[in-house]
Design a protein around this nucleic acid. Structure first.
Lengths: 203, 203, 203, 203
DNA sequence: TATGAATGAGTATTCATTCAT
DNA sequence: TATGAATGAATACTCATTCAT
């Protein structure tokens, strides 16, 4: 019989994680102290430690939220007829997924942390695994539509490169390069398909 | 008439920056204190502050070293006949450039810092700019060889996506995914060229 | 709705300021570190920084306490009949005011700091201003009793010299010269009034 | 057979002491580091430590220079006919003695140090002793001229109060109060002699 | 004598975490 | 559960002094 409802608990945890992410976005994890989380969340230090056992513990939940895969996005691409092309899918991923829109700064910081923090790395690996599954499903549909002889095999092989396109976009934009989803789609078009993907005026 | 030679000065600074990078690789910047830099470099705190004015100042030089573009790598690709294909070039980049081999962990951490540290972001932007120039030169040569009508234009458009392939590889491997340069080349092949890019045995 | 009462807060601040003053008296400010304040106050470093934002901030409160004018002392002199003479008042000031008794060492150090620290100088200037007011009130009463034609004017003119008598006593005794309040009164007597103020045996 | 002439040695020491005093005047001793002395003196750290064994050692010489009594000043007063009055002598002391003109800031800082540094206190005590001697000689001449029955005795008694007048002036002006020698003379006049000491126009 | 790079104990301050209320 | 005052180890950095050249 919990003293506080699960709902209330989740609400409070969300405030805490949200406060951490806000601060990460603004000043970076290195400069984010518990004092920041305390003042931004509106909770007291004691209250926070009632929900999380340490700062790292909060960070883990923050990482989960940010890299959280939301693999459903791929479902709609697979279900479309015709299946949209990879450049188009890349454009939609980087313009729709929260991770690429509002959280790209925190996301890149979390990848940085993952290089030396095994718990965060595990979250990252899991997330990439899930995304990879979605990407493979989509790519299989696309390669099948293109008449490929072994679309499942090709999709499995191609997935890391496909994900890389989205990840590279994140790096480039997170550090401030002026790269719009639409422009990036053209980049992928130009690299993969030749200029035929571009409209007349853009050629 | 400096009492210590420029050479000696560069040597000492290299020790300091090296110590920081070693520690970043092992425990991450967040857990790297000046005490680590002091003990790993073999210099005293006072000596270090004779060369650098702050920890951040050291970090800046470390970032410069790690993201330092070494754009020359592209020259050999441009000069080859025939010009190697993008998948091959990607493979060689990620297997030859130190940033992708020994420093990928520090590199990813630096991208994370760049999201909130303008001075580091500037270094990153400059580095991507230089790399971009090399990539464009290479891509132009490649597209020309492929008979493209406007290879310069196409190369310029495609460059961000091309760089993204290398950056995504870095993210995936830095967090521990088992992805070899050779396997990654096949991924790019599969995405770009279809299965015909794979060798017989692998089909 | 403060969690700690104003009273408790004042108590803790007094402990901190007291610790600083104790150490100043014993080893001087130059040799007084936060470690001294921490150990003498019985509070932890963290607790101290909860009350004061910096060592200088503590010093400011210490200066306020030490130079704090306590101008009331002059009131009783003004109200007496007959009004006591300047030598007598000087004697009573230097023997009654805490600044001249227990804090003369810290006081002199604070004057030293005031020469280059504007915030401390401001405290000193204010304190001298208040003391000056008291001194003028007393001197006016005295000169009036002495039948002076324009006692207010004369009191205003004379105040700096009158204060100087107390300040000079402080310098001479703070560095260890053996000068008692009683003996100093005789010095002032001898300078001002001739030897008539002295008892037979002392002449 | 000294390697460097005594003259050269004195010259170098003067540079060092001068550098310390300059810095004390500008930023205070607390903020004066050996680095300041090194850069202001134009000598290297090694060279300085060839002349002085420690920072405190330099400070001692600086204190000697600043409090150095220059008791000769009193000789001229004694020799004058008529002997000038105490208010006039006070005015001349505070307007002529370097300690009261250019060095009053350093002087007050040194008094502050003397409260806890016995070596500096000894210099201060000696200096006051010498000054006291001069003051007594002058006061004796003055009291004799005034027809006092026991001028030597009275001078001895009055000396501490007489010195205090100069010391108090130093405190008041060193912290920035606007007090000119001429105005201070009037203060002493008003206290000692009554308004008749003031010139016609000022009454 | 003079140099200035190097030393390392010492500095003020921070901050994740605890616990009496 | 919630509060926020208190803790104290850890932090980045300074600076008087030394010593090989």
């Amino acid at each position: 019989m919990p003293r506080i409802s699960e709902e209330r608990k989740a609400e409070q945890k969300a405030k805490i994680v949200g406060a951490l992410l806000d601060s990460m976005r603004e000043k970076g994890i290195a400069d984010t102290s518990m004092a920041d989380v305390i003042s931004r969340s509106g909770l007291s230090s004691g209250a926070i430690y009632g929900y999380y056992s340490s700062k790292d513990d909060i960070l883990l939940d923050a990482a989960r939220e940010v890299v959280g895969s939301r693999v459903e996005v791929f479902d709609s691409f697979v279900a479309s007829a015709p299946v949209p092309s990879p450049p188009e899918v890349v454009e939609r991923l980087v313009s729709d997924l929260p991770a690429f829109v509002v959280e790209k700064r925190s996301l890149l910081q979390i990848w940085g942390l993952a290089t030396t923090n095994p718990a965060i790395a595990a979250i990252g690996v899991e997330s990439i695994g899930t995304l990879s599954g979605g990407a493979r499903a989509y790519l299989e549909a696309w390669f099948r539509q293109e008449g490929d002889a072994d679309p499942a095999r090709r999709a499995e092989l191609a997935a890391p490169a496909f994900l890389a396109l989205a990840q590279g976009y994140m790096i480039q934009t997170a550090i401030g390069l002026p790269l719009e989803p639409r422009g990036y789609r053209k980049a992928v078009d130009a690299l993969f398909l030749g200029l035929q993907g571009l409209t007349e005026g853009e050629r």
